[in-house]
């Protein structure tokens, strides 16, 4: 098993290099950082001098390794628009995003696990049909449109919830105020995650219920409820772990749109602003970070999987 885990880590290394390579390639496609600085006050000659100083006249591959060396030391470059280190900008904005994602993850799993399991155990029942139908509709709603409808209803028509931001301007920040600001973005994020999660858990549970060992358990006559509690639920842990791993990239994507609509002061909004301003060092810094987080979470999912499931093949 340790060999398998080591092998998984070894496979992740070329992928990590590939991520930095793609990230660097995208940044190079975006244009040279010199052009981005070029303005009326900077002459071509001064630029050429600066280019040599920064090593940008060297071959691309050398530049890539220079960049990689800086990267390992935690230097993600400077934001063009805000003139601040990318790493510190990310640091300032990561908190609200982590809060939004964390609460949404807990709520969506808290709803999806019972719904999916119930739906599978009571397959073909009315509740099953309803849950599956709702999950289909949930996955078909664009999250930005749901956000607009919610703002329209709860802010503009009913006036009960704020339309955006994380705190009310001019008031002392309080937990209650932040919670009120969180309700709508969290609802949108949860809806966008819920449908797929329910269907995934339902499908995995149906597969488990169809296994021979469960048929044996039922044949022994120990009662349907006990079979599900004792045997099936324990095995449903595996698909649930898988889902946790799958959520992270989906939530990253979701946060870009949701934070934009709700002016939530997090990483997603920072990224969208950077994209609209074509602030490439910042965009690529965030992308790189996100890709590494996704890679690591996939790796962790695989490792936890092998720890939980004794029957998995370690080849």
């Amino acid at each position: 098993m340790i060999r398998y885990i080591l092998k998984r880590i070894l496979i992740a290394i070329p992928v990590l290099l590939g991520i930095t390579l793609l990230d660097y390639a995208i940044m190079s496609m975006a244009g040279s950082p010199m052009e981005m600085m070029l303005g009326p006050r900077v002459t071509e000659a001064a630029l050429a001098e600066k280019e040599a100083l920064l090593g940008l006249d060297q071959p691309l591959i050398v530049q890539y390794f220079n960049w990689l060396k800086e990267l390992i030391q935690g230097n993600l470059g400077y934001s063009i628009k805000q003139n601040l280190p990318v790493a510190s900008l990310i640091g300032q904005n990561i908190g609200p995003t982590a809060l939004l994602m964390g609460v949404s993850l807990i709520l969506s799993m808290g709803l999806a696990i019972p719904a999916g399991l119930h739906s599978a155990v009571k397959q073909y029942s009315k509740t099953d049909y309803t849950i599956v139908l709702l999950s289909f509709i949930g996955t078909s709603i664009p999250s930005f449109f749901l956000a607009l409808v919610l703002v329209y209803l709860f802010n503009m028509k009913l006036g009960v919830l704020p339309s955006g931001g994380m705190t009310t301007l001019g008031y002392d920040p309080s937990i209650g105020d932040t919670v009120r600001h969180m309700i709508l973005p969290v609802v949108v994020m949860v809806v966008s995650l819920l449908g797929n999660n329910i269907r995934y858990i339902r499908a995995s549970m149906l597969e488990i219920l169809d296994q021979d060992y469960l048929r044996t358990a039922r044949a022994k006559g120990i009662g349907k409820k006990k079979v599900i509690r004792k045997h099936a639920l324990r095995n449903a842990l595996l698909p649930i772990i898988t889902i946790f791993g799958m959520q992270i990239p989906i939530m990253f994507s979701g946060s870009v749109v949701i934070e934009q609509v709700f002016s939530w002061p997090g990483l997603g909004r920072l990224t969208m602003d950077a994209i609209l301003n074509r602030d490439f060092p910042l965009i690529m810094g965030v992308s790189l970070l996100a890709a590494i987080v996704v890679l690591v979470s996939n790796l962790l999912t695989d490792i936890i999987y092998t720890l939980v499931d004794p029957t998995i093949e370690y080849s």
């Binding site: 496979i11 590939g18 793609l22 995208i26 994507s253 870009v256």
Partner: peptide, 22 residues
């Protein structure tokens, strides 16, 4: 497969937006 790993590591919408910006 390693290429698919690399592409799939980037959050989907982020990659799309970055390319759209470029």
């Amino acid at each position: 497969m390693r290429i698919t790993d690399v592409v799939m590591s980037f959050p989907y919408l982020l990659l799309v937006l970055v390319f759209a910006a470029i």
